[in-house]
C-alpha cells in the first residue's frame, strides 16, 4: 500500500495503517526531537507524544507533505517538552561523563563498522555540534534542524515549524551564522573538508 493509501486508511481509524507510517517515519521524528531537545530520554517522550497526537489529529491532514505535517507534531511536542523541563527541571538517571554529557552508546551511530577511535571521534563531533545547537534559541534551533539536519525544503520547514516562509529564511540564516561561530571552537574535531577557514568565519 502506498503512503497516500495508508494515510487515507489511517484517517478512517485503521491503527495498522498508521503504524506502518510510524515505522517509516520514526527515525526522522526521533532524530528531529533529539536534535531539538538534545536528550535521548526527552526525545523518546516527545516522539511517542507526537505519534499519539498525529493519530488523533490525522483527520486535519489535508494533503501536501506528510513528512512536514508529521514533523510539525514532533516540533510542537518538543516545544511542550522544553516548557515542561523549564517548569520541572529533572536530573537524568543515565550515567554521565565528568563534563555532564550523556555517555554515547555505539548503537546510536550510523556506521556500525567504524573503529573504536572513529566512533569516539564521531561521538565527540556529534556532541560538539549538539552543544552548538543547544546554544541556539529554540525557534532558531527547530528551523535549522528541520532544514539542515532533516533536509526539508523551505516550504516544508514553514509547515513543520508553523511560521511564514520569510521567517524561515531569516531564522535559518541567523542560525547558520551563530552555528558557524560556535563551531569554530571545535575546529579540531571537524573533518578537514569542512574546516572553516579564518576568512569564512570573519
Amino acid at each position: 500500500m502506498d503512503e497516500a493509501a495508508l494515510i487515507r486508511s489511517a484517517q478512517g481509524g485503521n491503527l495498522d495503517s498508521f503504524n506502518a507510517l510510524v515505522l517509516s517515519y520514526q527515525d526522522h521524528v526521533f532524530n528531529t526531537a533529539f536534535r531539538i531537545l538534545g536528550d535521548a530520554a526527552l526525545a523518546d517522550d516527545a516522539t511517542q507524544e507526537a505519534f499519539l497526537s498525529a493519530f488523533r489529529s490525522l483527520r486535519t491532514f489535508r494533503g501536501g507533505s506528510f513528512r512536514a505535517w508529521l514533523l510539525r507534531t514532533v516540533t510542537n511536542a518538543s516545544y511542550d517538552e522544553l516548557r515542561r523541563q523549564k517548569r520541572r527541571p529533572t536530573t537524568p538517571l543515565e550515567p554521565q561523563t565528568g563534563d555532564g554529557d550523556d555517555l554515547e552508546s555505539a548503537r546510536w551511530l550510523a556506521d556500525q563498522t567504524a573503529s573504536p577511535e572513529q566512533l569516539t571521534e564521531a561521538a565527540e563531533l556529534d556532541r560538539a555540534i549538539q552543544r552548538c545547537l543547544n546554544d541556539l534559541p529554540t525557534d532558531f534551533r527547530a528551523v535549522v534542524v528541520l532544514a539542515d539536519v532533516q533536509g526539508l525544503d523551505y516550504v516544508e520547514v514553514a509547515v513543520a515549524a508553523g511560521v511564514p516562509l520569510g521567517t524561515v529564511k531569516s531564522r535559518l540564516a541567523r542560525a547558520r551564522l551563530r552555528l558557524r561561530e560556535c563551531l569554530q571552537g571545535f575546529r579540531e574535531l571537524l573533518p578537514s573538508a569542512f574546516r572553516l577557514s579564518a576568512d569564512e568565519t570573519a
Partner: peptide, 28 residues
C-alpha cells in the same frame, strides 16, 4: 568568503550522525 562559511556549516550539519529510533513507536 561568508558563503563558504555558510556552506561548510550546512555541510557539517548535514553530516551529523542520524539518531535512529531506540525502539518502535507503534501505537496500540
Amino acid at each position: 568568503s561568508a558563503l563558504g562559511g555558510l556552506r561548510s556549516t550546512r555541510a557539517v550539519l548535514r553530516g551529523m550522525v542520524v539518531r535512529k529510533a531506540p525502539r518502535n513507536f507503534t501505537l496500540t
